[in-house]
């Protein structure tokens, strides 16, 4: 099979995945707006069906069906950066580096979205867009670490060494996360407790749980689709750089005498 056919075939698979994700997104959004009950508080300790802090229905809470999967994709992406970085340092294979780089970009994007959706919820619920809560601060630090990682990759003078150093940064960035987490927890915290992963079993009604899990799957699909596109772009960039390098090494072609009229 020629490389072109392989590329085309993997392209078809990606398109199918993107289509599935698009349909899933529409279904998920419909479920968020029309199926999941409103006026049901996610804050622990508030009885089922009771409003959170005021008498109005808690429409704002619906943003969690987007916020939670986005946050999960961000963590997943940074986990993949760790795996890709370790594998690249061990094997020296370029594709691991391309994987880590792609995943870091998607991770930064989703961390940014996670901060944004969190702020949109925080403003009406906490009365402020931003507060120095531990989870918020941790997410922001993660954002900074991986923006630094991407910045480093963009400025590296030598691509091979740059990739190796970026891998070291990617690994340490991830190892640092639990440490930053504890330093934030001991500072102070305000973030709602986890209600899905809970020792006493999920604390959500069925429709909410199904919607949440469904969107987690959809977002995982979105992540995979973005990764497929981005790694393909990375390989293409690499092939282009190689071709350019080969072109420079070749002696310049003899100038043909072009008869200009």
């Amino acid at each position: 099979m020629s490389p072109l056919t392989t590329a085309r075939r993997s392209g078809t698979g990606t398109m199918v995945l993107i289509a599935l994700v698009a349909v899933g997104m529409v279904v998920g959004i419909a479920a968020i707006f029309f199926w999941v009950p409103t006026a049901n508080c996610l804050v622990p300790g508030v009885a089922d069906g009771q409003p959170c802090f005021d008498a109005r229905p808690d429409y704002i809470q619906h943003i969690f069906y987007m916020h939670v999967p986005i946050a999960y994709v961000a963590y997943l992406a940074f986990g993949v950066v760790l795996v890709g970085s370790l594998a690249y340092l061990k094997t020296g294979r370029r594709r691991w580096d391309i994987l880590a780089h792609a995943s870091a970009e998607i991770g930064v994007l989703f961390t940014g979205l996670c901060l944004l959706t969190g702020m949109l919820w925080g403003r009406p619920r906490w009365g402020t867009f931003w507060t120095w809560d531990e989870t918020l601060t941790l997410t922001f630090v993660l954002f900074l670490i991986y923006v630094g990682y991407l910045l480093f990759r963009g400025l590296a003078a030598d691509p091979t060494r740059g990739a190796r150093i970026a891998a070291v940064i990617g690994i340490f960035g991830f190892v640092d996360v639990p440490l930053v987490h504890f330093s934030m927890v001991w500072w102070r915290t305000l973030h709602p407790a986890e209600v899905v992963i809970n020792p006493a079993g999920p604390q959500l009604p069925a429709s909410e749980l199904i919607t949440m899990l469904f969107l987690l799957v959809v977002y995982t699909g979105l992540y995979v689709a973005l990764m497929l596109l981005r790694t393909r772009l990375g390989r293409a960039e690499e092939a282009l750089a190689e071709a350019e390098a080969a072109l420079e090494e070749r002696p310049p072609p003899r100038a043909h005498v072009a008869a200009t009229p």
């Binding site: 400025l155 590296a156 003078a157 740059g162 070291v168 940064i169």
Partner: peptide
Amino acid sequence: ASQYVRARELV
């Protein structure tokens, strides 16, 4: 690490 990039004082 930052010795091998452009604008290293900033990075």
